[in-house]
Amino acid sequence: MNESAASSQTPPIEPGQTLSGRDFAPAVEARPVVAFRDVSIAFDGPPVLDNISFSVGPGETRILLGPAGVGKSVLLKLVNGLLRPDRGSVLLFGEEISNMPEEMLFPLRTRTGMVFQEGALFDSLSVRDNVAYQLIQERVPDDLIDRRVHEALRFVELDETFDHYPSSLSGGMRRRVAIARALIHEPELLLYDSPTGGLDPVTSTTIIELIVKERDVYRSPSLLVTHRLQDAFTMCTHRFDAEQNRMVPLPKGETDSNTTFLMLEEGRLIFDGSLHDLVHSQNQFVREFLE
């Protein structure tokens, strides 16, 4: 277990824990996709994030937990350079981005996919143009764009919304379109900012099922921010069954070993470890949060 100080390493698999039938090696052996080293940031006041260090390895899914207002979304925006840290360094795909000029960040950002809290779809564009936004900027031929948009929309099971506008979609549908937009460019890293925030339980489960599907089908590393424990636990204890085309629970006692947790408290990283570590943590804040 690795508490109160953040670790830059994925914790070793605990005795008794098993891999969920995945055929790739644990992330610890490869270069991290994202690495934070003593990162701090403040906005006209006390630090929002204070000396944060952690990493996301290839194939890893990291779930960032914490109550509202502890800096989870700020941390996510630091990952792809939407915000700059006051201190410390942020490495994205091995490149130091904390002082990188904005122009140099754009190509790096195209290698990531980000799902925003409310979807952040462009109101004036159709679902097709929203999902295809990056491809349109790259002047990909229209027929190829249409094909890839249909594929992405089929993945989130919203193919029928191809010609719709965001204003005609429900909150859950907007999030699913946002996931399709993030996936269309086959990103090397996915960032989810409270993808189930403000949604009803049924729609939340649909979104989590899509994220698990993405994790188990494409195996892109990802960092997911949430304050909903239920979503986090579901991700850890379920896998996507391609034959049944739905999310199914892992056998009792098994968890997805590549899905691990981070927890923030008042801008400090107080937990970095597996689900097993989390539920057995003796940290007072972690205990209160879980209860």
Binding site: F106, M114, F116, A120, D123
Partner: peptide
């Protein structure tokens, strides 16, 4: 302004567009 407060500007930057 509406695009800023609904994070559409951040989304645009995240999609690699200035």
């Amino acid at each position: 302004g509406s695009m800023v407060v609904t994070e559409q500007i951040d989304a645009m930057r995240a999609l690699g567009v200035d």
